[in-house]
Design a protein around this nucleic acid. Structure first.
Lengths: 244, 244
DNA sequence: AATAAGCTATGACGTAACGTGAGAGTCAAT
DNA sequence: ATTGACTCTCACGTTACGTCATAGCTTATT
């Protein structure tokens, strides 16, 4: 049973951090004294290890809290995930070493190097480890869609969606590969990419979903009978013509 | 020559980050258009690589700025430092893997584990890489002493120093190993450890310095002739009795 | 020339994760 | 009782952007 300084000394994090973690409900000590001193048990320390690990991997505290407090959380599984992620991070470091070596050679005049090569392994676009943890602890597709929706006013999304759907509904009796159909489906593609991140292949797959999942079909066909099927075809054509 | 989106796409950092880096003078693009668009050259990208690397290693931006803008900065040397630090980080990861493995075994009931062992390799007390970079780019001892002094009001330091010195001056004609002398020299020891980090051996060494360096002697003996010599002896006795 | 889409800029507020200091209480040794 | 180390809560500050608003710029198309 340890007090804050002892835990801080043991782990290297600050007393303030422990206070903060308690405050946000991330790590609440099992016990407190009559004087309100925080008393950390062995189990608390075990949990802290998990927290510090996820933190080391770049996870925001809010997300860490969700993970460790979920009913699905299993400590041994988490430890095994940690291990996998550590190995992965190590691979990343290997790649970074290679990039640095290449840069050194380039700097010494030995080789040429593209800008792309210069940043190999230095990919900061997103936390690469979160992907894997998400597969384990959350529904990635659901998370992603929720997040993307948030980026834009729901009213606006609905409005633009409706506009494009109505345009397409007028064209649905034509062939899906006419210029007009393709132009409008292109609008849909670009609109989606303003709120998300879709490759043309993902776009094609989404079109397929419109007909495979009856909730999509039902929703889309409100704008016109058969619209979902039409869009699926138009989207497939679009993807064919715009591979990228 | 790239504009902000191109650089952002290439590196995975945000346009906002590039703006911010420009704003704080960390990375200012070599050129701008008439419309004030930022134009990044190859050299700018090279510098950005350095920045992102130091950032990956956990350095605050302010420190990164100091490093790369110093007249001592040599890109090839920096790249070689990067490499060394990457290898070191990799070793840390190896250690973390071992700790996780050990924890897994413990969790499965196979072995016992101390709290200390639980956090092996998870040392977050300070950025371990900064130490090495500091040796290369800055005077660590000077930095440390400046930092420690800053933790306390100079007036307060002077006052407490004076108080303790006057106490000791009254005892200087006694033997340096009396209870009273040792108690007061203990105050001095504890006071020093509030503004710094001294082992008893360092304490002993400091006492020796009081007599070896005439500036110390002169300063201390203002409180009483022979005080420096007395303190040296008392400090040596203290160190002997309080090995730790 | 006008338009549209994508990109650019600056300004400014908000967020996450603490760091820091103040003031007061607690604990254990002397 | 005193002292030094530790504890608490409160609250403001810092760092490093994220986000949004507003307005201008660029390029391709009509």
């Amino acid at each position: 049973m340890l007090k804050v300084k002892e835990v801080a000394d043991l782990t290297g994090i600050s007393v303030r951090t422990l206070h903060y973690y308690d405050e946000i409900g991330l790590l609440t000590p099992s016990n407190t004294t009559d004087a309100s001193y925080r008393i950390y048990s062995d189990a608390d320390l075990e949990m802290l290890q998990q927290i510090l690990f996820f933190k080391e991997m770049g996870f925001p505290l809010k997300k860490i809290k969700e993970i460790i407090h979920s009913s699905d959380f299993d400590r041994i599984e988490a430890l095994e995930l940690h291990r996998n992620l550590l190995i992965e991070k190590r691979s990343r470091l290997d790649q970074m070493v290679m990039t640095v070596d290449k840069t050194i050679q380039h700097a010494k005049g030995g080789t040429t190097m593209t800008n792309k090569e210069r940043f190999e392994g230095f990919d900061f676009s997103q936390n690469p480890y979160e992907q894997e943890a998400r597969e384990k602890y959350g529904d990635q597709a659901v998370d992603k869609s929720k997040q993307n929706i948030k980026k834009m006013d729901p009213e606006k999304i609905k409005e633009e969606t409706g506009t494009i759907y109505r345009k397409l509904a007028k064209l649905r009796y034509d062939a899906p590969d006419t210029d007009e159909a393709q132009s409008t489906i292109g609008e849909w593609y670009h609109f989606l990419n303003r709120i998300g991140d879709y490759s043309t292949e993902a776009f094609r797959g989404l079109g397929q979903l419109y007909v495979d999942d009856e909730r999509f079909t039902k929703n889309i066909d409100q704008y016109g009978e058969g619209l979902a099927a039409f869009m699926k075809d138009a989207m497939a054509h679009y993807a064919d013509r715009n591979k990228g």
